[in-house]
Amino acid sequence: MSPEHAPLRSGPRVAVLVSVGRHPVTGRPRRADQDARAVELALGLEQADTRLLHAGRHDDDSDSALRGYLGMGFDSLELIEQNADADVVPALVEALRTQSPRLVLTGAHAETGEGSGMLPWLLAEALGWPVVGGLAAIEKIERDTATLLQALPRGRRRRLRVRLPFVATVDQSAAPARQSAFGPARRGGFEAVAKESRADELQAVWQVAPARKRPARLKVVKSGSARDRFKAAAAKSGGGGGKVLEDATPDQGAEAIMALLREEGVLR
C-alpha cells in the first residue's frame, strides 16, 4: 500500500476524479465525501496504479481540501488549472484521452457550484465509454471486463459485468473513506498542468442563493361531504389505533407478530 511502489504496479490504471468539497454545517472546504469514497474504492483494488485528477482553480481553500486526498496515501495529484467559472469537461476529456486509464471513478455530485452530477455522463459520452451509477464495490477486474456491485435501495446489491474501459460514479452506499493523515498530506505535491479554460456562459444568468427550506405540502381533503372535510381537519395526527394484546400467552403473541411479518413480506 505504500505509495513509493505505485509505478511498479502491474494492475489496471485507475483515474479518480476528485473535487473540492464543502462541509455542510461549517461551510469549510474539505475533501468531497463521495469523491473520498471513490478514492477509498480505488485504494482497495489490488495492484492498481491509481492516479488522482482534479480540474479547477488552485488557491488556499482548494489546496487544503485537495491535500485531504493526498493524506489518504498518495505522493501527488495531477491538477489541471482552470478558472473558477470554467466548464471543466473539455479539459478532463483531453487529460483522460492522453492518460487512457482502464477505469475512471468519481463521486455522483459535487458539493459546490451547480452540482448537477452530469460530469461522469458527459465524460463517458465524449469518450464513448459505458457508465455505471451507484457503484458499491468492485469485485474483480479481468482483461476486458470488470464485475461490479451496484447499490440499490434498502442495502440490496446488483451484480453487473461491464466492459473496460468505463466510468463509474460512487455515492453514499460505498464504504466510507479512511481518515486523511496529516504528514503525507503535507509532503504530497501537485503536478500542475495549465490548460485553456472555457468559460461556462449559461451560468452567468443564474441567481444562486442559499437553499430555502421547502414548504411542507398541505393535506387538502377533496371530498364532497362537509362531514368528511370536518373530520379530516379535526383529526389528531398520528398516535393510537394500534392493536394491544394484553394477557396473551407467548404463543398467541408470537402468532400475532408472525402474521404481521408475513403480511408485510419481510420474512425471506
Partner: peptide, 19 residues
C-alpha cells in the same frame, strides 16, 4: 406501546424465543 401498530404485553424473552 402507544406508538406501536401491534403491541404484545408479556415476557419479552419468552415471546421472542417462541417467535
Amino acid at each position: 406501546v402507544k406508538r406501536a401498530d401491534l403491541a404484545v404485553i408479556g415476557d419479552a424473552e419468552a415471546i421472542l424465543a417462541t417467535l
